[in-house]
Amino acid sequence: MKEKWLLLSLIGFLISCSKQESMDALTARVFTVAEQQYLTMDTRLEVTTLPQSIASDSTFKSSTIYWWCSGFYPGSLWYIYEYTQNEAVKTLAEKNTLKLDPIQYVTNDHDVGFQLNCSYGNGFRLTGNEDYKKVLYQGAQSLATRFSSVTGVIRSWDFLRRGWKYPVIIDNMMNLELLMFASKAFDNDTLEYVARTHANTTLKNHFRKDYSSYHLVDYDPEDGHVRSRQTVQGYSNESSWGRGQAWALYGYTMMFRMTGDEKYLEHAENIADMLLSRLPVDGIPYWDFDAPNGNEYRDASAGAIMASAFVELSGFATDEKARQNYLSIAEKQLRTLASSHYLAEPGTNCNFILKHSVGNLPEKSEVDVPLSYADYYFLEALLRYKKAMG
């Protein structure tokens, strides 16, 4: 009798495990955690600081507004407000967005797009605040000053390590959305020209035959020829750094949305298909696909960025099988990130939402810690998935 009870209990347990949580329920669960974590997170901040990560001594680490990630916390607050309609969250989103006002005048850094589009961009989308729109336009004009008609790309960094003369990183694709938005909103063809030229030049020079991307291409500012191709934050120059592939997928999917140019869609799908053939079973990429001991670290941030891009790409792909493949891998990534292994318990993880991201492993910086952009793209991906499913 006891053996029969144990067998029935085991069968019941297995049946219950097979009942998968609905994506609506999963999304509600994640946003409940996000709301709790990010309302508390604000108490850790000062007038001019924003969340960055967890320090080596396991304490909360903040940044100034000039750190490249500064726009992600207010951006995440806007996403949480979009889902919850909690006015307290909206108030914090407004407060932390306004911290970034000086960024609109920055001309010595390409990350203006990240900083302003995530914060002011989402704020304008959700509120229609015209003051936000003006900041976005000024920021786009500042970003465009870093473009060279000789190289055909926006310069990423001004510091010249490793003999660089005009370094451009794949991350820079993400900043083009600010230029495209401002071009359309203010009827400025120059900003669109800068964005499209950068995307075209990057498409030509940043990718290998298998559609994986280098991290950095260094150009000669005098005649525009490629001096070298490197993967600075990955395992080796010829390896496929996980987050770099995510930036590429997201960037070209976004450029198709903003321009309707089919070559961007084709390129995004080629990148997507390459990733589908290389991602682990649970969908979360290794910090570098080619590192000998790559399974030592997964990168939740790369998984979140990819998930958001895959959802959007699924709405553009013309082939039904491809559409389903992209949406399926996005769902898998989101389910994995929403599991207890990655999703923090409220009150833990220094109030970040996700655990286990990798910033820059070669420099032993931000390894296996939470990162603000992992949270941002995770929330964005969940909202995109919800809209995609109606």
Rank of each mutant, 00 (worst) to 15 (best):
C350G: 06
V232T: 14
R335H: 12
S228H: 05
S240G: 02
G260N: 07
M274S: 12
Y214P: 10
R335S: 09
D223Q: 13
A317V: 11
D223L: 07
L313F: 02
R323M: 08
A304S: 05
M254C: 03
Y214K: 06
P346L: 03
G251D: 13
D220A: 02
T253Q: 04
S277W: 07
Y214H: 09
R323V: 11
Y286I: 09
M306A: 07
L343T: 11
M274A: 05
G242Q: 06
R298S: 10
L279K: 02
S340N: 15
F352Q: 02
G294H: 06
Y235W: 15
A291D: 14
I353V: 04
A330H: 01
S339L: 05
M255P: 08
Y286S: 09
C350I: 00
H215S: 07
F316K: 01
R298V: 14
L334R: 02
A338F: 11
S328D: 15
R323L: 00
I284V: 15
G242C: 05
M274W: 05
D282Y: 02
V226N: 06
G347I: 07
E238Y: 12
E296V: 13
I271E: 09
G260W: 00
G234R: 07
M255L: 13
E320G: 05
R335F: 12
K332C: 14
G244D: 08
A291R: 12
Y219F: 15
M254N: 08
Y219M: 02
E320Q: 13
A307N: 00
V217I: 15
Y235H: 14
G242N: 04
L275N: 10
K263F: 06
I329C: 11
D288R: 04
E238N: 14
G242Y: 07
K321Y: 14
R257T: 05
T253F: 01
L265E: 08
V311T: 09
G347P: 02
N349F: 06
A304Q: 01
S236H: 10
L265P: 11
E266F: 10
A344M: 08
D220N: 15
E312R: 07
S213F: 05
Y342D: 04
M274Q: 09
E238Q: 14
I305W: 00
S328M: 12
E345N: 02
G244Y: 08
G294K: 13
G234W: 08
C350N: 14
W241K: 06
D261M: 05
K355T: 07
G242R: 01
S213Q: 04
K321L: 15
N270K: 13
F289Q: 03
I284N: 03
A268W: 00
G315H: 11
L275E: 10
Y297T: 11
